[in-house]
Amino acid sequence: MTLYHASNVVVDNPDTKHSREYLDFGRGFYLTSMCEQAEKYAQRFIRRRQNAYVNIYTLDADNDEWKVRDFLAYDKEWLDFVANCRSGRQTEEYDMVVGGIANDKVILTIDLYFNGHITQEVALNRLKFEHPNIQYCIRSERMLQQCLTYIERKKL
């Protein structure tokens, strides 16, 4: 599978050390399967007058050795998981988490929920109309080293 990562630098040797904490799926190396999504995300670097790259990789993790959490929709499980990760309370160990991105439209809803302005039920009703843009968060260094191969970079 081909995956993409937007950055202001070439990332030919990815790691989890440079990840920020409290992201959607916790600390990890984030990728997408949609090149257009990575290019759109890379535009933020151009707006800051920085270099912008889409780094391209292949992921080969087709065995049962890895502990993977896969969210197929913006549902209660996804919302609870993201809430726990963003607050630093997520304690389950996964090599990779796959699921929807909290994009601009989704983030407004989950921020309202996290801040107590809407209930979980209202948040889930709003989210059910959103089609997830999938992100891959590789959380283990071992999986990064064994399964993700850098191919090339595209400068925007």
Rank of each mutant, 00 (worst) to 15 (best):
T2F: 14
Y4I: 06
Y4E: 00
S7Y: 01
N8E: 09
V9Q: 13
V11E: 00
V11Y: 02
N13H: 12
N13K: 14
N13I: 08
N13W: 07
P14Y: 01
T16C: 09
H18S: 09
S19M: 02
S19A: 10
R20N: 13
E21F: 13
E21I: 13
Y22F: 13
Y22I: 07
Y22T: 08
F25E: 01
G26D: 06
R27E: 06
L31E: 03
S33V: 11
S33M: 08
M34I: 15
M34S: 14
A38I: 00
E39H: 07
E39I: 09
E39Y: 10
Y41Q: 11
I46Q: 09
Q50M: 09
N51P: 07
Y53L: 01
V54S: 05
N55W: 04
N55V: 03
N55I: 07
I56M: 05
Y57K: 00
T58Y: 09
T58I: 07
D60V: 12
A61D: 08
D64P: 05
W66M: 04
K67R: 15
K67E: 13
K67Y: 11
V68R: 01
R69F: 10
L72A: 12
A73Q: 15
A73E: 15
A73K: 15
Y74L: 06
K76N: 12
W78K: 04
L79R: 02
D80I: 10
D80A: 12
F81V: 08
F81W: 10
A83S: 13
N84S: 15
R86P: 02
R86A: 06
R89M: 12
Q90C: 13
T91K: 15
T91H: 12
Y94R: 01
M96V: 06
M96N: 02
V98W: 02
A102H: 01
A102G: 03
N103Q: 06
K105M: 09
V106W: 02
V106P: 02
V106E: 01
I107W: 10
L108F: 09
L108Q: 14
T109C: 14
T109D: 09
I110R: 03
D111V: 11
D111Q: 12
D111H: 13
N115T: 11
N115Q: 14
G116A: 04
T119C: 07
Q120H: 11
Q120L: 13
E121W: 09
A123V: 03
L124M: 01
R126P: 05
L127Q: 04
H131D: 15
P132N: 02
Y136D: 05
C137L: 05
C137P: 00
C137N: 04
C137A: 03
S140E: 05
E141R: 04
E141D: 08
E141L: 07
R142K: 15
R142I: 11
R142L: 10
M143I: 01
L144F: 02
L144D: 04
L144W: 03
Q145N: 13
L148E: 06
T149L: 05
T149A: 10
T149I: 07
Y150E: 04
K154M: 11
K155G: 09
